[in-house]
C-alpha cells in the first residue's frame, strides 16, 4: 500500500478572481522513497507539499496517508499526524528567535506524548546527528544559514517521523551549506525515511530517486531524476 496517495486533488484559492493552484493531481509515494517535486515558481509545487503535509486541505479530490482518508480526520488528529508522522524543513528555517537551539529542537516534543524527562536526550541526539553539539545553547541569530537549516532538520526529526517534507531547503543557502543539508536528507533516506523534496533546482532534485514536474498546477511529467526536463 502506498504511503501517500492523492486522487484527483484540486486546490482553488478563493477571492474575487479564484485562482486554480492545483488541478487533478494523482500522485503516489511509497514508503522509503526519496521524491523530488520540481517546477518553476507558481507551478503549485509548494501548495501540493502543504496539502501533503496536512497544513492545508484540497478543494476537491482525496488524499490518503498510510491508507487513511485525511478528509475524515479532525483538527486534533491532523495535528497529531503532523507531530508524529510528518517532519517539515522550510526554506526560511522558521526557527523561534531568542530561543536556543536545544529549545527549538524540543518544540515538537511539547506537543507529543513523549515524557518530558526524555525530551532533552531526544533533542540532543538529533542535534548531535546534524553536527551542532557545540551550538546547543546558541540562538538562531548566532548561527549561519546552513547551521539554522540543520537545526530545522534536527527539529523535523526529533519525534522520529516517517516522512520528511523539505520545501526548498537549500533555497537560502550557499552551495557548501546546501550540500551539507542535502547530504543530511540523503542520509535520512538511507536510514529508511520517506523524503519529499520541493525544489526548482534540477541539480538539487537529482539527489532524489524519482521526480515529478509541476507546471501550471498540474503534474506534467514523472520519471527518473536524471531525465528531468527543463524546468522553466
Amino acid at each position: 500500500m502506498a504511503l501517500i496517495e492523492t486522487k484527483g486533488i484540486e486546490k482553488v484559492f478563493g477571492g474575487e478572481t479564484p485562482t486554480v493552484a492545483l488541478r487533478n493531481i494523482n500522485f503516489i509515494v511509497d514508503r522509503g522513497e526519496f521524491v523530488s517535486i520540481v517546477g518553476p515558481s507558481g507551478s503549485g509545487k509548494s501548495t501540493l507539499l502543504q496539502i501533503l503535509g496536512l497544513l492545508d486541505s484540497p478543494t476537491a479530490g482525496s488524499y490518503f496517508l498510510d491508507g487513511k482518508d485525511t478528509s475524515t480526520l479532525s483538527d486534533e488528529e491532523l495535528a497529531k499526524l503532523r507531530n508524529r508522522t510528518l517532519g517539515f524543513v522550510f526554506q526560511s528555517f522558521n526557527l523561534l528567535a531568542r530561543t536556543s537551539v536545544l529549545e527549538n529542537v524540543k518544540l515538537p516534543l511539547a506537543y507529543s506524548n513523549f515524557p518530558s524527562r526524555s525530551w532533552d536526550k531526544m533533542a540532543m541526539a538529533q542535534i548531535e546527528a546534524v553536527g551542532l553539539l557545540k551550538r546547543v545553547y546558541h540562538e538562531p541569530s548566532q548561527l549561519s544559514g546552513g547551521e539554522r537549516q540543520r537545526v530545522a532538520i534536527a527539529r523535523a526529526l526529533v519525534t522520529n517521523p516517517e516522512i520528511i517534507f523539505a520545501d526548498e531547503p537549500t533555497g537560502n543557502l550557499d552551495s557548501a551549506s546546501g550540500k551539507v543539508v542535502m547530504d543530511t536528507l540523503t542520509r535520512l533516506h538511507h536510514e529508511g525515511k520517506t523524503v519529499i523534496l520541493i525544489t526548482h533546482d534540477r541539480n538539487v532534485a537529482r539527489r532524489a530517486h524519482r521526480a515529478v514536474l509541476c507546471r501550471d498546477g498540474a503534474i506534467v511529467w514523472e520519471g527518473d531524476v536524471n531525465d528531468i526536463p527543463e524546468i522553466s
Partner: peptide, 16 residues
C-alpha cells in the same frame, strides 16, 4: 502569527 503557524505545523492543536 508565523510562530503560531510553525507551532501548528509541528503538531500544536488549537487548544495548545
Amino acid at each position: 502569527t508565523k510562530e503560531i503557524g510553525l507551532r501548528k505545523a509541528l503538531g500544536a492543536t488549537n487548544s495548545d
